[in-house]
Structures are given as structure tokens and as C-alpha cells.
Amino acid sequence: MGRKAKHHYIPKCYLKEFTIGGEDTSPFWCVPINNNTPFQTSPNDACAKRDYYTVQHSNSLIVEDWYAEEIEPKIKKGILHIKEHSSLPPKEEMPYLFLLLATLYLRVPSFRNLIESPLKRTREITNSIAQDIKIRNKSEFEYDQTDIIMSELRLIDTVQTCLSNKYFQLHVIDDTKSNVVTSDSPFILSHPNSSNGYCFGLNTPMVEICVPITKHAIIIARNEKITEGSFKATEQLIGLTNTKVILSADRFFYSTNSEILLVNDNLSTHKHKISTKKDVTPA
């Protein structure tokens, strides 16, 4: 057997909940945000990159294996409860949901780029200065993929703790003809002042977290107190979530159906056709 080189940055156990068949091989629509032609793929081949979690270690797959063997089983429990009971997990099982959300927030390429950007800029400045001035500790400004992955791992507990202090709502879609989409960056942070270049983070007042959990379930979380529990998702919330997911996607978004709900600037809903082909069929 060859070395496991294709690493998922979003777990297959999450992605398969947006297919019809609900399996790793079940198809769903993959829509490039650069307006290229949509195509059908499966969780096996979505949100994965070659050697994404390969590190400098005697076991180069130690992080990839840890995610697969230690983290994904816990994530599955959180998804399964929501899927089977259409409710938030009980208090003792909420850490499974926090872990899922932390995974969707931290592991995606867009967040890795966020970590790497200042490191890359610092290295560029150091290399530029070194052309004229001898820098004795120049090597200390170097980094590799292992360093970035270690930063990600150190943040997992911090993000989970942060999430545990928020108020949560689960919005369930009971119309089988409607579905929410997901993407390669499905953890969405929004803020009323974001259009003005306002910088915000997980603990910023008035920030809202919106994450599609399955094709029929949406998580909303806020720092300010809101009525927690499970609610029927409105058509407007479905359309707004889909619009947010698409606008926040890095390269692709994924949908069970070829027709999805979106919202206009005035938040009125309309249906958008991804493709003129028929919907994907169960695996």
C-alpha cells in the first residue's frame, strides 16, 4: 500500500452530510467560485490536498493520523446527535460540537494562509535586510509547514474554550426540497461593521458565527445572550446562510441539489440554478 498522501482539511464525516447518499462516495455538486463549470464529486475527493498534514517527524503522518483516529470519532458524535434528534447536543456532549466547529475554523487553507502571511512577510523583510547587513540569527526567521501546523494544534483548545462561552441556536430545515450548502471554508464570522474594514474576531461584541452542520441544520452562535435551543429554519435564514457560505468560500462550495435558495441585497429570497443538469443521484 502506498503512502497516504491525500489529506482532508475538512473531515469526510462532515462533508458526506451534504450529499444525498450520506456516504464518503456519495455525489454532490462542487461549484467553483471563479465561475468555472460546476461538476459532481464526492467527499472522498473534496477539500483535500496532497501532504497537507505531512510534518517533520519520524512518523510524518502523525498529525493526519491523530485527526483521523482521535478527533473525527468525536466530531461524528456531535453531527450524529444533531442529525438524529434535530436538537443541540446535551451539555455533556456539547464539547463534540465545539470540536467540530474548531476544526472547521482552524484547519482550512484560508486560515493556514492567515497564520503564514505575517511569517512570510517577516522572512521577506529579513532576507531584504540581510543583503546589506549581517543578521546573526537569520535562521530564526525561517519556518516550514510543520511550524504552521503546530500553531494550528496549539489553537484548538483555545478556540474550543472560546466557543464554550457562547450562546447557541440550532435551526433545522424540515422542507426536504430545501437544503443549505457548505464550502471549503464553512465557519462564517460576520459583524455589522465588517463592510467598513472593521477587524473582528471570535470574542468581538456583536459577532455572529454561522455554520452549516448538515444539509438540513444550521448553527448560529453569539457572544451576547440569545434564546438557546432548536428552531425551524426560515426560508430567509436558509437563503442568507447559503449566500454567506458562497461569499466566504475559498475556492468551492458544495450542494446536494442543483437549485439553491439565496438572498438579494434586500434579503428577499430567490432560487438559483447551479446547473441545468439533473440533481445528483444517491450512491
Rank of each mutant, 00 (worst) to 15 (best):
V207Y: 01
G201V: 00
L262G: 02
D184L: 05
K177Q: 13
L114K: 11
A48P: 02
F39A: 12
L100P: 06
I79P: 02
P11N: 07
M94W: 03
S86R: 03
G78T: 04
T256M: 09
L119C: 04
I149V: 01
E84N: 15
G229T: 06
V172C: 07
N165Q: 11
T25C: 06
P109D: 10
L97G: 02
F39K: 10
C13N: 13
F18I: 01
N44V: 05
K215F: 07
G22H: 05
K6F: 10
I125W: 04
Q56W: 09
Q131P: 01
N266V: 10
I209C: 06
I156W: 06
E152S: 07
V180R: 02
L267N: 15
P95C: 09
D45P: 01
K134Y: 13
R107K: 11
N59T: 07
L261K: 03
M206T: 12
K74F: 12
N127A: 10
G201F: 05
D175H: 05
I188C: 08
N257A: 14
K271T: 15
Q40M: 15
Y167P: 01
K12E: 11
S58W: 10
F187W: 08
V280K: 02
C47T: 04
E93Q: 12
H8P: 02
R136T: 14
D24K: 03
E84Y: 12
I75W: 04
H85Y: 13
K273T: 12
L97T: 03
Q169I: 06
D250V: 00
P89N: 10
L80G: 04
L119M: 12
